[in-house]
Computed example of a mutant assay.
Amino acid sequence: MLVEVQGHSLSTKSSPNPVTSQEADELLVQLKEKLSETPSWLQGGEVTAIGGPNSMFCVASEALERRSYQAHDIRAVLGELLGLTDEELMTRAFCQGELREPPGFIIPKLALLLAVMEHCQLKEVQFCAAIGSCPGLLIGDGWE
C-alpha cells in the first residue's frame, strides 16, 4: 500500500524507503479508512499483544526499547525513521537477527500499528514476546 501511495508498484520498487512524512500521513489515512468500527469493549482499552521477532509489536517494542507503549510513542518513533534508507534501517536492532523482515516492512508495520491504536483509541499496548503462528491475543477485564 505504501509503495502505491508513492506512485509505484512492487514490481518496480521493492522497498518504500526512504519514506516522506507526507507519504506516511497518506498511508495512515488509507489504513484507517479500511478499518471497521471499533467494538465498544475495545475502544479506549489496554491490550496485550503477542508476536515473534518480525511482528509489528516487537518492532515497536525494540524501536522504543520498552514493552509498553501508547500511540504517541509510535508516532514519535515513526517520525524518527522517516527519510531513512534501507541501509540505514538495517543498522537498527529491529532489523537484525533471525526471522527479521526486510527494512522495507518497518515503516508500514509501525504505520499499521499506529492506525489501529488511533482508530480504536487504545490507551496502551503491552508487548509479550511469543513464538507460534497465532495472530494475537487480547486480554481485558469487564467483559459483558
Rank of each mutant, 00 (worst) to 15 (best):
G83F: 09
L78S: 06
E37S: 15
L112R: 14
G52K: 01
E98C: 11
W143T: 11
V29A: 10
P135S: 12
V5A: 00
S61D: 05
T20M: 10
H119P: 00
T12S: 11
S36F: 12
E144P: 13
E26G: 03
E23K: 05
I74L: 07
Q126A: 12
E101P: 00
F127Y: 07
Q22V: 13
Q121H: 08
E124Q: 13
L137I: 12
M56F: 07
E124N: 08
E124H: 03
T91S: 15
V3H: 04
V29N: 03
K123D: 10
S14D: 13
G52P: 01
E144C: 11
P103Y: 05
G97H: 03
Q6V: 01
L35E: 04
V3R: 04
Q30H: 05
Q43N: 13
M90P: 02
L99I: 06
L137W: 09
K32Q: 12
D86H: 08
A76I: 10
I74P: 01
S40E: 14
A115K: 07
A49L: 11
G104N: 03
A130D: 05
L35W: 02
E124R: 13
S55K: 00
K109P: 01
I74W: 03
M90S: 14
E118C: 02
D25E: 12
E33R: 15
P103H: 09
L112M: 15
R75K: 15
Y69S: 11
F127C: 08
F105N: 14
E4A: 10
L82M: 06
Q30A: 09
E62D: 08
L113Q: 06
P103W: 02
S15C: 05
G136P: 00
G97K: 00
L112Q: 14
E101D: 13
S9G: 12
R75E: 14
L31R: 11
L27M: 12
